[in-house]
Simulated assay, not measured.
Amino acid sequence: MSEERRLEVLRAIVQDYVRTSEPVGSKALLDRHQLGVSAATVRNDMAVLEEEGLISAPHTSAGRVPTDAGYRLFVDRLSAVKPLTRAERTAIERFLHGAVDLDDVVGRTTRLLSSLTQQVAVVQYPSLTRSTVRHVELVPVGGTRLMVVLIANTGRVEQRVVDVGRDLSHDEGAVGDLRARINAAAVSHPLTAVPTRLADVLDAVVEEDRVVAEAVAQALADVAAEDTEERVVLAGTANLARVGSDFPTSLSSVLDALEEHVVLLRLMGSMSALADEDRVAVSIGHENPYAPLRTTSVVATRYGVSGGLGVVGPTRMDYPQAMAAVRAVAHYVAEILDG
């Protein structure tokens, strides 16, 4: 019973500190929460929590604030992530369904997450190297040039213009036949397997179309080999300045770290690996592997098969709200891209 009561005291301290940013004292706890115990009991519980490293005194005042370990216990003991309201879910769905392409989806998602949570939103583009082929389109663009358009199951669209050494503007039959053969071999297969899958296509085309087929196959192989598609998009960095008191000496280093997209890609990759469609990963303070971000918390999850999204903010974060927003937005993004 005493352990459960102390957890209730910790929960109240976290909630009050997140809301007010002021150290929380025993009198404030009794005034704001129905704890059902005496002031002496609350003070004793706070003393035990401090001994266990779950709360600390930032200065000589009587108030206490949660530590990284305290936030961790609070997050781990959440019985369930509170669902968003119907109005919030409707707003998310309408906002995201207005997107016209993947870039628009990602841009809208970052702005939406930042607005919902008042944190820095981070969205990682779906990786082509872990995607499958939805469709390949071939479009003559004049002279001997042919545009090769790859559409992945994640919504990614890549295009290359290649010189095939032959004017195909008036040879729709050859283009249509090659398009059909390529799609039959590649659709629903991993992009990384496309070069191998197209080997049989090259063997089957007639000799006069072999050069064209080889140029298209090489363009698709080049897309599969590239890793430059690994990108992240940010929104809401100004939100950190709004809570600058949470970063008395580290705000500039946090902002610098957020500019390092390689760092963010690694962070999102490691976080989304811990999550699934129903689980949100939370990394708090010193749990973050990259030193400049150890005054922040990260809430992230996966969307689809290879994308990641989340928020970065101070450890004094409304974790239940952030977790609910991240999970809901990821669900809607996955629905849009899968559709």
Rank of each mutant, 00 (worst) to 15 (best):
A87M: 06
H331C: 13
R316C: 11
V100W: 04
T41H: 13
V148L: 11
A39D: 15
G176Y: 11
S127W: 00
L138D: 12
Q321P: 13
A152I: 01
R86T: 13
T192M: 09
E259L: 09
R108I: 01
V65R: 11
S115Q: 05
R108G: 01
A221K: 05
L29R: 09
T85V: 07
V326S: 14
R86E: 13
A99Q: 00
I92F: 09
P58C: 03
A324S: 08
A91Q: 10
T144A: 15
V139E: 15
A238Y: 05
V175Y: 09
G269F: 04
R11Y: 04
E229H: 06
E207D: 10
P320F: 12
G63L: 14
D171S: 07
F247M: 07
A238N: 01
G165F: 06
A62S: 12
V263R: 00
T315C: 14
D276P: 07
V24L: 05
G313M: 01
T85K: 02
V175M: 15
V206L: 13
A241H: 11
R86W: 11
R11N: 02
M147K: 07
V243P: 08
S115R: 04
G269I: 04
I182W: 08
H170P: 07
V139W: 15
D203L: 11
Y303S: 05
G143C: 11
R156I: 15
L10E: 07
A185V: 02
V133M: 05
N153G: 15
D76Q: 07
S61D: 13
A99G: 00
A174K: 05
G285P: 07
G308N: 01
T196V: 08
A275K: 01
R279L: 14
G143V: 15
A217T: 00
V75C: 08
S79M: 12
I151Y: 08
L146S: 14
L168S: 06
D16A: 14
D177R: 14
L274A: 13
P58E: 03
